[in-house]
Amino acid sequence: MSNFKVFTNGIIKENPTFVMVLGTCPVLAITTTGFNGVGMGLATAFVLVLSNIIISILKNYIPDKVRIAVFITIIATCVSVVELLMKAYTPELYKSLGIFIPLIVVNCLVLGRAEAFAQKRGVWASALDGLGMGLGFTLALTLISIVREILGNGSIFGFPFLPAEADKILLFILPPGAFLTYGLLFAVMNALKRKANI
């Protein structure tokens, strides 16, 4: 697989949210506003790239039987780094994402890429894989959160396009709206994919 294919793999063909259905907890929980979606996606992408790089560098020094423990140690460190950086430079975003930033540790997408890709491949390919997967995740989160924000809050990235007194479909900001939006977008994605024969 060429490097370019490794990169685009995560965005389209094996999109973590719409194809592999990995790490759906943050997908459903935090996609209430566009900013949350982008922020969570980029934080996860950062963790993916960093942990993929470290794991691919260390892959020859990790005994098979303890590899999961080592991966989790590395991933937890990366997540703590992201947490500290967000606390320092984007405190507002950190506050609105709350508990879901530390929970990236248990996002199976991150461990999944370590296990399926980074422990077998070189540093450069692993970094690209992490970036592709992270961007695919970010795009999916952004898409879902924009739909939910438009329908439930009448705004796009915080800019309201409806008057404040207009009726909005509050359901879409609430948890059931997450499932509805996710399911419907999933159907649209599958239809598009069938048409394009991917």
Binding site: D64, K65, V66, V70, T73
Partner: peptide, 21 residues
Amino acid sequence: MESTLKNMVLSLTLISMAMVA
């Protein structure tokens, strides 16, 4: 990589220390 008690303890310890640093 083949797992022995020695290399498991060693790699876990060293990697954890590096991460903490």
